[in-house]
Nucleic acid binder design. Structure first.
Lengths: 217, 217
DNA sequence: TTGCAACTACCACTTTAGTGATACCTCGTC
DNA sequence: GACGAGGTATCACTAAAGTGGTAGTTGCAA
């Protein structure tokens, strides 16, 4: 089953990384890069047309990200083996990728030789995961799931909206003006949202929220 | 001035990207990659030893990040031209990099040919910036400045300490107990720190601080 | 139709926060 | 020794924040 070349398609919005990867794959005679794409749209089209044996897909792309691209490819009926390549070891990404039909999840900072080895394994039909990933995945699956701050879902739209404004440092009065309601009403919402989240002050709420968002918005 | 090879050092924790970059640079006869490093510590050592003409430095590295590496290199007296290579177009990163002695700031998703061209320009002594960056930088410099933890340096130890506790959501009373001082004294420090940072409430302070830290502590 | 959830508003009241001023102590610098 | 910066503390006062309760209005679901 190794008498014929395997076709590979690269999807990554960093030309540089594609170059490096291509060079790496060139080391193996039985691998042939038949297509490259720098974004999700192109990738989906090409995948449907060419039906490569393997697609190496970057998770963090601008525009349509890798996860979305993966989903749509599977929706379109692409049956190629798809391996995610990424810098992210965020457990949710991994779980989502796998559950959306990825056949592997490799980290970009993996040693090139190891990477090449794993890519070959993926072509043989094995599920490949970077070492660091295996543990993450294991622990992630151990706890039933969560990640979607269940607490946030218990908030009403208004409460959620106000929580965001608090997380920008706004006072009740400012929030009231922003939303065209009285500051007394804002207090009511704040009271409710604090109770639901189990927090003791708007400061705690702000800190909590900013951390949820990963800051910088 | 082009009769001799220019020495280049690559610093990036992704072997793959180093490979791609190296291959790209190999296209130019007058460029020679004399060293590679995958982390800040090694990079600083090598830079001091080898004194390359150009250092291409990844901004987002695990452990010591690119910015810190840059600072320390300059502290150590490294005079090489240093170009930051990164995926981040966050304005603060750019401003910080430049103000800490970087000679250029390039984005990884730049077209390889353009990238090579800019690297050569950097070697000629020019400040190189990716196009997308130029605008960001312009607008960032338009607003007088702020955001550079220059303000943080103006804080006394006690004020800084208290700012941290505020960023955990603590009230004055709790902070007072934590530090074994009166809550009145805490108020004094809070007042001072708010004035120095130009903020209007502890909530703003908390949000600001959490963002500074990149959250998640 | 009834009922409930969400949003709004007001009121009264307590607790925190924040301001301005003054003052004492310590340490290091000039 | 004088001086300033940093840390502490107290007092008096204003301004926000937070709590409890009541209540009117939607709109949707049972």
């Amino acid at each position: 089953m190794s008498e014929q070349k395997s076709s590979v398609m690269l999807v990554d919005d960093h030309p540089l990384l594609r170059k490096g990867l291509k060079q790496l794959l060139a080391l193996e005679d039985e691998l042939e890069v038949i297509a490259e794409a720098s974004n999700g749209q192109d990738a989906i089209k090409l995948a449907a047309e060419l039906d490569p044996d393997l697609i190496i897909l970057d998770l963090n792309m601008q525009g349509m990200d890798g996860l979305e691209t993966l989903k749509r490819m599977r929706d379109e009926g692409v049956t190629s083996r798809i391996v995610m390549l990424t810098v992210s070891d965020a457990d949710e990404d991994i779980v989502k990728a796998i559950s959306n039909g990825a056949d592997g999840y490799l980290l970009k900072d993996t040693d090139p030789e190891v990477l090449l080895d794993q890519i070959k394994k993926a072509l043989e039909g094995k599920m490949v995961l970077s070492e660091a990933i295996t543990q993450v995945l294991a622990t992630a699956l151990r706890r039933p799931q969560a990640k979607t701050p269940a607490e946030l879902n218990s908030l009403t739209n208004r409460e959620y909206e106000i929580l965001h404004l608090i997380a920008k440092g706004m006072s009740n009065k400012v929030i009231a003006r922003e939303l065209n309601i009285s500051d007394g009403t804002v207090k009511v919402h704040v009271k409710h949202l604090l109770k639901k989240l189990g927090l003791r002050s708007r400061v705690e709420a702000a800190v909590w929220m900013v951390n949820q968002q990963g800051g910088k918005l």
